[in-house]
């Protein structure tokens, strides 16, 4: 049952009390949301369909799914779909992430490890 039932498909499973947590969304979360909306617009293909993003989320593995926050799943899944479609390359992605981190350090900000 734990094999044939996929980890995102959780309706009815035992779980603890609902913690009424909330947080102020961070700028990168708003940005992620906007990226997904823009890529989903018909005028851009669409380059991303919501079911493609969901599929990518469902393929990341149960441990990662539970470890990541909601918008972390979104950006990771969307990035994977863009890589699959060749919108940008793995090489370009790696360099772009390092460029963002370098900019953060140059501005005196901190960069989390891992």
């Amino acid at each position: 049952m734990t094999t044939e039932r996929r980890y995102h498909d959780m309706g009815g499973l035992p779980a603890g009390p609902v913690e009424r947590t909330e947080h102020e969304f961070e700028p990168w979360e708003h940005k992620t949301d906007a990226i997904v909306r823009l890529l989903s617009e018909p005028g851009r293909g669409p380059l991303l369909r919501v079911d493609e993003m969901r599929r990518a989320i469902e393929e990341m593995g149960g441990n990662i799914y539970d470890e990541l926050t909601y918008y972390e799943r979104w950006i990771a899944a969307t990035t994977n779909v863009m890589l699959e479609k060749g919108v940008f390359s793995v090489d370009e992605l790696g360099k772009a992430i390092e460029a963002v981190r370098a900019k953060q350090r140059a501005a005196g900000g901190e960069v989390a490890e891992g």
Binding site: E26, W28, E29, K31, T32, I35, L68, T69, Y71, E72, I75, A76, T78, T79, M82, F88, L93, A96, I97, A99, V100, R101, Q104, V111, A112, G114
Partner: peptide, 9 residues
């Protein structure tokens, strides 16, 4: 990491 990825993407 994921915040950096969002900016990079």
């Amino acid at each position: 990491y994921h915040a950096a990825m969002a900016d990079a993407v």
